[in-house]
Every structure is written in structure tokens, then in C-alpha cells.
Design a protein around this nucleic acid. Sequence first.
DNA 1: TTGCTCCTCACGTCACGTGAGGTGGC
DNA 2: TTGCTCCTCACGTCACGTGAGGTGGC
Lengths: 168, 168
Amino acid sequence: MSARRRRTTGEGSDAVRIAETRGVFMISVAAELADMHPQTLRMYEVRGLITPKRSPKGTRLYSQADVERLRKIQRLTTEEGLNLAGVETVLELEDRLQKMRAEVSKLRAEAAEMERQMEAEVERMKRSLRAEIVPYGAYETTELRPRGDGRDQTVKIPVERPTRRRRS
Amino acid sequence: MSARRRRTTGEGSDAVRIAETRGVFMISVAAELADMHPQTLRMYEVRGLITPKRSPKGTRLYSQADVERLRKIQRLTTEEGLNLAGVETVLELEDRLQKMRAEVSKLRAEAAEMERQMEAEVERMKRSLRAEIVPYGAYETTELRPRGDGRDQTVKIPVERPTRRRRS
DNA sequence: TTGCTCCTCACGTCACGTGAGGTGGC
DNA sequence: TTGCTCCTCACGTCACGTGAGGTGGC
């Protein structure tokens, strides 16, 4: 939860990992990491494409996430030839696409869970029903106590060898 | 189904409606409808942004759908300032977004239908179970015929006043 | 002092739109 | 003949990247 320094182990790297959104790179470093001219980064900020943090003295501080965004912009402009208006639009659309993908995953998971619960419920009722209509004489006493109003009632009956199906 | 001429009534217009994808406009008309220079349309075709049909003589023929695409391109370039690479990317992304939206709708509909069926099934079983455990003496004879192996069996019992709920 | 930061201004390049110019068939 | 179509070539404009130039604080 904390935005402070933290280490992550595994993932094949021993490097100290920095919280994604913490401003850590001065403009020259960020520019080199993104393979851009520092002046270009300043321009992108004016255009509203990127908003690095600032040190108390006013020095720009770029986060890991900022650098990744810059690399994405770099790819869109250099490789795909978009202008900055296009970059803006595309980043926004990709954001929405990402949210839609999450939505689809969520819906699929919910549907699967609902199906599971439905099967469990039906199974539960089947067992309940089966217990009601065991053959005469299978058990010593099967006491059915009727209720006056004749509405829903559940009667528990001791079952010797309950039929078990799959995982419930 | 047919791609041939057809009329549609209603929708507040008496105009003859043309199948969306049929090539009907010469370049000067399409250009005017899209508020573009004819030469620009030729350029877009070279760039692969639009592919009008051709008459046997080689004259470009733009469909209603082509014109709408042109207007969309017009909006993206003039109003939003994208270049053509951006337009290409954005149109492709919007296509995917549209498909995702359809996917989400479909999943939601499926989930609703599943829930409906589940409720119906549970209801059906409840009724079945309720019929089994009617109080003694409610009906003249309730004959339970046991089966030898004691496994699943369904026993149908005449019910005088079946409880009917909603549409099944 | 060196090397960074901040900023503004200016220029080169490239994409894009469009006009010109010449051709051909209803 | 007029007005459209087809095409290619060329030029003006604008966006963008980047270099220069001057400032200030570790």
C-alpha cells in the first residue's frame, strides 16, 4: 500500500525496485531511458502529454511509470508516425480498451461463479429430494412429521451411505 | 439480405435509402458530402484510408458508408488535429472498442438469462420437493413404490392444486 | 569551474492539403 | 464544347524535434 521504497524479490532481477509512481529520474536520465532529447520531454510536458513531479527547487522528476509512458509515446511517434494529437487520442482509447478488457474478465468470472453456485444449489436440492423418497424399509424408522399448513418444510433423514458426487 | 436497392420507411425521411455499402457517389459528390477536396479523397485512397468501388470505366464510386468514414476522418484531422497515421490507428482502435462493447452486452445478456434459468430450475425443484412432503391425509392415497436398489428415483404424485408461479 | 537544471527563440524537416496541368470519355 | 473523370508534380503551411543561448544553484 505504501508508496515508499520497497524491494521485490524474484522476477529474475536483483535490482532495487522503486515504486512505479515515485519521481526519481532527472530529465537527462529520463530522456536517455526513453531515448529522447531532454528538450522533447519539456515540450511534451507543455503539451500535457506527461506531467513529471517536481523537486522543491523546481527540477523535474520522472517516475518509472513516466518513463514507460514516454517509451510508448516514442514508439507511437517514431515507429507508427503519429503526431502528438494522435498520441493523446490513442493513449486515451487504449485506456478505455484496457478497462473494457477488465470488465469482460470480471463478467466472465462472475458468470463462472454463478454457474458453479447454480450447480451446487441444484445438487443440494437433488440430494434433499432423493433423501425424501428413499425406499420403504431401507431404514428402520423414517419419521415424517407433517406440519399443519402443508407448506414448505425440510425434513432431515439419517442417511447411511450418502451418494457423493464430485466436489460440492 | 440483398445488397440491391431498397426503400426504408419511417425514421422521419421520405428519401430513397441506398444500401450502405453500394457505390453511388462520384468523387465530386462524395467530396462535397464529406466537405473535402476531391484530390484529398484520391490521396486518402493511395494511403489506404478509404477504398471506393470503381465503375467499369475506372471512375471511383463512394458508398454511404464511405462518406461516413470520410466525415469521421475529416473530424479527426480537422477538429482533433490528428495526422493520417493517427487516423488509421484510431479507427482501428475504435473498431476494437466497438467489438468489446458488443462482447460486454452479450455477456451481460447471457448472465441475465442464466440467472433466469437458474431461478426457474430451483423453483421447479422446490415445487417437486414440496409435492413430495405434503402432510399426511392431504390426499386420499399417496403411493410410494420403492425401487430395489434404493438409488435415484422420481415419483410423480398427482397434485390437486398445483402452485403456479410466474411464467415458467 | 564543470555539468547539470531552468527557460525562450528559431530553424530545418517532413506530412499534408491543394492547386496546376495535361488526358480522355460521356 | 462543357464539365466531369483520370493521373502526376509541385508548392505553401504547419507541427515537431532539436539546437542555441542565457540563467542559476549544487
